[in-house]
Computed example of a mutant assay.
Amino acid sequence: MSIVSLRPHRVAQLVLVPTILLTAIGVYGSMLWTLQISFTSSGLLPTGKFIGLEQYFKLFEQDRWHVSYRNMFVLGGIYMFTCLAFGLLLAIAMDQGVRAKNVLQTIFLYPIALSFIVTGLAWRWVLNPTTGLEYFVQGLGFSGFKFNLLNNPELAIFTLVIAAVWHGSGLMMAIIFAGLQSVDSELWRASRVDGIPKFTMYRRVVLPMLLPVFLTCIVLLAMGVVKSYDLVVAMTGGGPGYSTDLPAKFVVDHLFDRANIGRASAAAVLMLLTVIALLVLSSVATRLRKRSQSDQGAKPEQGNKS
């Protein structure tokens, strides 16, 4: 049988086989290998000495891991909420036809074109007390002005939030704005006829319709927080001390600098479980949303029959 005589969908399946195999081996195979290494005493090189959950127990004994994992939720919570809120306000402004709409879109979408390394370095310069905002304001005569967040262990994590929000809010604006553009224009015509205020329309009608869009945004932001590494390296290097450390940096440091593959693999497995938990929560929320919509659609039909 020649490949010419095969049906088109069979040819497509044969073409996809190498990609599927590479994905299975490269992605899922790497996950299984990492899981297996986390149960060994591997140091500089992987070994086959099985030690059970010892790497996980030692991992949770490290204060640095607790700090990095807590920072992930602190950074993630503030970053996700602020990005969604700011992106929503920008999207509504665009949807209402604000002046210089195209210019504002370009300004707020510009940070997306930059890597987190560039973003981190730029904000590190802005927040540097000797060359950045503090130095500039003090040069204007306000000698008592202080904005030295980078050297404060308790506040340094918020510098990452500032840079991350500046980088990510434009993408949220674009996604939410696309969702707003998909809303049927007849709804707005009907609201104008009925005299419904725009604020009420957004709060009661439009935004509930965009719940799947918001769930997509939350998943994208959450996964970005879990794998955050380059922004930390560029801005703070995890310091002062390890006050701005995040799990991804913890893994890379133990993998290369500390030559502890087993401990790094255990941390990577916990990061993977965090991502899986986020995906499961997103899937459950989507199903509950669809179920509630179907229940609401069934009630009017039952009322009509009665």
Rank of each mutant, 00 (worst) to 15 (best):
V4H: 15
S5I: 07
L6S: 10
P8E: 09
P8N: 11
H9V: 06
R10G: 03
Q13E: 10
L16D: 08
P18V: 07
L21A: 08
L22A: 15
T23C: 15
A24L: 15
G26F: 10
G26A: 11
V27Q: 08
V27G: 08
G29K: 01
S30F: 08
W33S: 13
L35S: 03
F39W: 10
S42Q: 06
G43Q: 14
L45Y: 13
G48A: 10
K49N: 11
K49F: 11
K49R: 15
I51K: 14
G52K: 11
L59E: 11
E61D: 13
D63M: 01
R64W: 05
W65Y: 05
S68A: 15
Y69T: 00
N71A: 06
N71I: 06
N71Y: 02
M72Y: 09
F73K: 11
L75Y: 04
G77I: 00
G77H: 02
I78M: 01
M80I: 15
C83I: 06
F86K: 01
L88V: 05
Q96G: 03
Q96H: 07
V98G: 05
R99G: 05
A100P: 02
A100K: 07
V103F: 14
I107W: 05
F108D: 01
L109G: 10
P111G: 00
A113R: 03
L114A: 02
I117N: 00
A122V: 02
A122W: 09
W123I: 04
W123G: 02
L127E: 00
N128D: 11
T131G: 00
G132N: 01
L133T: 07
E134T: 12
V137C: 04
V137D: 04
Q138Y: 07
L140Y: 07
G141D: 07
G141Q: 03
K146S: 15
L150S: 01
L150P: 11
L150I: 09
P153T: 11
L155P: 08
L155H: 07
T159N: 02
V161W: 00
V161I: 02
W166L: 04
G170Q: 10
G170T: 12
M173K: 12
F177P: 07
S182W: 05
V183K: 13
D184A: 07
S185F: 08
S185V: 13
E186D: 08
A190G: 12
A190N: 05
V193T: 03
V193L: 10
P197F: 09
K198R: 01
R203H: 03
R203I: 01
L210E: 07
F214D: 06
L215F: 14
L215K: 11
L220F: 12
L221N: 08
V226N: 05
K227V: 06
Y229R: 06
V232K: 00
V233Q: 09
M235Q: 04
G238M: 02
G238N: 03
T244F: 01
P247G: 04
K249P: 01
L255D: 03
L255Q: 13
F256Y: 14
D257H: 04
R258P: 00
R258L: 12
A259H: 05
N260W: 08
I261R: 12
I261D: 04
S265E: 10
A268S: 12
A268L: 10
V269H: 11
L273F: 13
I276K: 09
I276H: 12
L281N: 05
S282L: 02
S282P: 01
R287N: 09
R287C: 14
L288E: 14
R291S: 14
R291M: 14
R291Y: 10
G303Q: 15
K305C: 00
